[in-house]
Simulated assay, not measured.
Amino acid sequence: MGKLQNTIILLFLVQISFGQKLNTINNQAIQFSIKNKKDTINFILIDTKLDEIKPVFLFCQGSLPIPLFVKPEKEDIWMIGGGISNFDLNKIKKSYHLIVISMPKTPVIVNEKNLNNSYCYIPNENKPDEFSKEFVKSDFLENYENRAQKVLKYLRKQKWVDNTKLIVAGHSQGSKVATLIALNNKKVTHLGLFGANPFGRIDQKIRGYRKEAEKKEISWTEANEKIEKTYQMYKDSYDKDTLIKKPYLLAWKSFSRPLLNDWLQIKIPTYLAYGTNDIASDLCDLVPLFYIQNSKNNLTYKRYLNLEHNFFEVNEDGTPNYEKEHWKEVMNEFVKWIEK
């Protein structure tokens, strides 16, 4: 009887240790907040309970101040979740605590009237192209990494987290954030990169102008002028006085950091997935060459034919076919790779 009583008490204590006052959103996710003097870092865990011990799977979303949830005026709230709504969430949740961090200075839940056509948060609904000044000043690579490291530090201390494995993945801009996290955090065991640009960001504009000229969409004279203006913009981003006047240039400066050098320093298993019709990741075709040159064998790559940046199929005219999306397939392949 004594042993049974002790067992019951132990189970009760375990339940108490897991028991937290949960802020559940739409019966889909639990919201957490880490408050600092200058910032509040909000993030969600895709589940409604914390009764299982599982490793963390941090997904770093792409660019722009897109909220995690949208609240329409008349319809029910719905989740964007940094793009994870396109994934097979049940498959990921089965083995991992899936985490997404809210964009800086962006509410977790935003009324639909405060979104522009790209679902970006706009404080003034009458100015659809104007983001909050606070977001613009916070929109740089090092800030995203710093916020994520604080979230991971918090999660490592939770009793419902299995710290033997830590997966960090990112799409587009998020692949840059994921890269820096893995580079500077030795707890990360697997890195996933989706739609990544190995040479940063600014080069994409230059390659884009060249392609437009090659297709005769613009003249080579126009392409040359645009390329020269891009050089000047990038030069301005390194000028402190100009940054004060044009804080948006800070994002161009920080996110144009070439990732390839960082990837070659990372020793953990790295997974690279991209579509062949994605200008952002065109140069991923060259990445295996650098791994070969440096005698590194920790890269697995997956090239998805005729898919674009968000893994939609592409029509003959080059436009995305939004009826044929492949994110579930892409992410499931990554999860399968992790578990090998």
Results as ranks from 00 to 15, higher is better:
residue 3 K to Q: 13
residue 57 F to P: 00
residue 22 L to Q: 12
residue 48 T to N: 12
residue 43 F to A: 04
residue 109 I to M: 05
residue 180 L to K: 02
residue 67 P to R: 02
residue 171 H to W: 03
residue 291 Y to D: 02
residue 335 V to S: 04
residue 189 T to N: 11
residue 28 Q to C: 10
residue 65 P to T: 02
residue 245 K to G: 05
residue 196 A to G: 05
residue 273 A to I: 01
residue 35 K to T: 14
residue 101 I to C: 06
residue 7 T to N: 13
residue 84 I to F: 09
residue 240 K to H: 08
residue 113 K to M: 09
residue 208 G to I: 04
residue 263 W to T: 01
residue 129 D to N: 14
residue 41 I to C: 03
residue 39 D to I: 03
residue 270 T to P: 01
residue 103 M to L: 03
residue 327 W to K: 06
residue 38 K to P: 01
residue 252 W to E: 03
residue 230 T to Y: 07
residue 291 Y to K: 03
residue 178 A to R: 00
residue 114 N to H: 13
residue 169 A to N: 00
residue 295 S to R: 14
residue 164 T to M: 09
residue 293 Q to H: 11
residue 243 L to V: 12
residue 303 R to W: 08
residue 180 L to D: 01
residue 9 I to D: 12
residue 216 K to G: 05
residue 54 K to S: 04
residue 138 S to H: 06
residue 251 A to D: 10
residue 23 N to T: 13
residue 181 I to A: 05
residue 284 C to A: 06
residue 202 I to W: 08
residue 228 E to R: 15
residue 336 K to D: 14
residue 127 K to A: 15
residue 272 L to D: 01
residue 102 S to L: 06
residue 85 S to I: 05
residue 313 E to F: 10
residue 109 I to G: 01
residue 209 Y to K: 01
residue 200 G to V: 08
residue 177 V to T: 13
residue 35 K to I: 12
residue 316 E to W: 04
residue 251 A to K: 12
residue 154 Y to H: 14
residue 41 I to D: 02
residue 310 N to K: 00
residue 187 K to G: 02
residue 238 Y to T: 10
residue 143 N to Y: 08
residue 3 K to P: 02
residue 302 K to P: 05
residue 79 M to V: 04
residue 123 P to F: 08
residue 269 P to T: 04
residue 261 N to D: 15
residue 294 N to Q: 14
residue 309 H to Q: 07
residue 254 S to I: 04
residue 68 L to I: 10
residue 249 L to R: 09
residue 134 E to N: 13
residue 290 F to R: 01
residue 84 I to Q: 04
residue 197 N to Y: 02
residue 253 K to S: 03
residue 326 H to P: 09
residue 176 K to Y: 12
residue 275 G to T: 04
residue 209 Y to C: 01
residue 217 E to L: 13
residue 112 E to L: 09
residue 109 I to P: 00
residue 188 V to S: 03
residue 113 K to Q: 13
residue 139 D to R: 04
residue 207 R to H: 07
residue 45 L to A: 08
residue 146 N to C: 10
residue 151 V to T: 07
residue 239 D to S: 11
residue 81 G to M: 03
residue 23 N to Q: 14
residue 88 D to R: 03
residue 193 L to F: 02
residue 149 Q to F: 05
residue 277 N to D: 10
residue 159 K to S: 08
residue 137 K to V: 09
residue 126 N to H: 13
residue 134 E to H: 08
residue 201 R to H: 08
residue 229 K to D: 15
residue 38 K to R: 12
residue 3 K to D: 13
residue 21 K to Y: 10
residue 59 F to C: 05
residue 96 Y to P: 00
residue 106 T to Y: 06
residue 235 K to Y: 14
residue 52 E to A: 09
residue 289 L to I: 12
residue 62 G to L: 04
residue 75 E to R: 14
residue 182 A to L: 09
residue 169 A to L: 01
residue 175 S to E: 08
residue 160 W to H: 06
residue 145 E to S: 10
residue 157 K to M: 10
residue 291 Y to V: 03
residue 84 I to S: 04
residue 33 S to L: 06
residue 299 L to T: 00
residue 260 L to N: 10
residue 25 I to F: 08
residue 263 W to Y: 15
residue 194 F to R: 01
residue 75 E to W: 07
residue 246 K to E: 14
residue 58 L to Y: 13
residue 161 V to Q: 08
